[in-house]
């Protein structure tokens, strides 16, 4: 592990100012980087994948804007330092939007969720094996070196949103619930604060897979805001994985349904484990709107969701699995009693 220095930020201002050399590089290759729960950062530092020279610990910042879960009639605001387990345990969230709580409950292990923050969670980096072991060529870790996964053992890799440079999956579960509900993020940087749609935070790999988000190195995520229509109570997160707990998804689906009788008034669909970024399946949503929710319409929507899939040698099964996961999630959520 590279020697590094470590600083505890006492205020939000301290934190954003600690990163003076913002520069043009993405936060993940900046000299100064933030650490929250550290479950991703310290792991990847030990592997030599993340190599910050200086760490700014944002945990000591007392601001309630970073630490509280505030729930109103129409919205929930989640501070970036709220721990995953706090949200999964929150009765209001479980009731008003089960998908949010479930996407967290089904992630990692309880020990990790007690430590990991929501801000860190949405910024977690891919688990691509070739990315995590530094002896392989990897465009994301070492731009221009090539992508070992492309023609290698790519069973866990993405089939949607891939590029010729990178096919790494975005593994986070919570982000699928957020993108489905069109959440927004509050960001504070040296240039002041800004708010953006969560859907705009992550970047497709394209030919620059090392740039994962639109954040600048000095920018801190302060909070996440999610609007909660009444029908978000009819929502769920289905995660399919190689074992029943403590594994990243092979395919997952976050689904919320606004039903009038059998008819779909509105629907939100996001797909995890199969795409390079948090993935909202808008065309599949459109295909369902105004229709009755049946196996047939659900299957049709799933076909549409995966129509652009580009499988590689070992991950071809994810196309069929992804479709089946979505159909199952739609049918399960459709049958929920709320």
């Amino acid at each position: 592990m590279l020697p590094f220095s470590y600083e505890r930020a006492e205020t939000l201002d301290d934190a954003r100012k600690a990163v003076s050399d913002g520069g043009e590089q993405p936060p993940t290759s900046a000299a100064v980087q933030f650490i929250a729960g550290g479950t991703n950062m310290s792991d990847y530092m030990r592997l030599g994948v993340n190599r910050p020279a200086h760490l700014v610990d944002i945990n000591p910042i007392p601001d309630s804007s970073l630490r509280t879960i505030a729930i109103t009639e129409s919205e929930v605001r989640l501070g970036a330092l709220v721990r995953m387990s706090e949200v999964e345990d929150h009765p209001g969230i479980n009731q008003r939007c089960p998908m949010l709580a479930e996407s967290l409950k089904l992630a990692a292990s309880r020990q990790i969720r007690n430590m990991a923050s929501l801000g860190g969670n949405i910024l977690q980096r891919t688990r691509c094996e070739y990315f995590r072991e530094t002896s392989w060529p990897c465009n994301k870790r070492d731009p221009g070196s090539g992508c070992a996964a492309m023609d290698g053992f790519n069973r866990q890799h993405a089939v949607l949103g891939t590029s010729d440079a990178c096919i790494a999956t975005y593994h986070g579960d919570f982000a699928q619930a957020l993108i489905a509900l069109d959440a927004s993020v509050e960001i504070l940087g040296q240039a002041g604060s800004r708010r953006m749609r969560f859907a705009e935070l992550h970047r497709l790999p394209g030919d620059r897979p090392e740039i994962e988000t639109v954040l600048r190195p000095d920018e801190i995520i302060v909070a996440i805001a999610v609007s909660l229509p009444a029908w978000a109570a009819r929502s769920g997160y289905l995660k399919i994985r190689d074992r029943q707990s403590y594994a990243f998804s092979l395919a997952s689906a976050a689904v919320a349904l606004d039903l009038s009788e059998e008819t779909v008034r509105d629907v939100r669909i996001a797909l995890g484990g199969v795409a390079t970024v948090p993935w909202r399946a808008t065309e599949a949503e459109e295909a369902l709107k105004g229709k009755a929710l049946t196996e047939e319409t659900a299957t049709k929507a799933a076909e549409i969701a995966f129509s652009g899939a580009k499988p590689r040698q070992h991950n071809a099964f994810k196309v069929e699995l992804g479709k089946q996961t979505l159909v199952r999630a739609l049918m399960d959520v459709g049958q929920m009693r709320i």
Binding site: R127, E129, Y130, E133, A148, D151, G152, F153, R155, Q156, D242, R243, Q244, S245, Y246, A247
Partner: peptide, 25 residues
């Protein structure tokens, strides 16, 4: 244990990717 057949190298070198059952299984 999974191999990269081009290089005869192990791909899943830790317990994240070399799966063994957890309690829930």
């Amino acid at each position: 244990t999974e191999f990269d057949h081009r290089s005869a190298r192990v791909v899943n070198r830790d317990l994240q990717d070399y799966l063994v059952p957890v309690n829930a299984d």
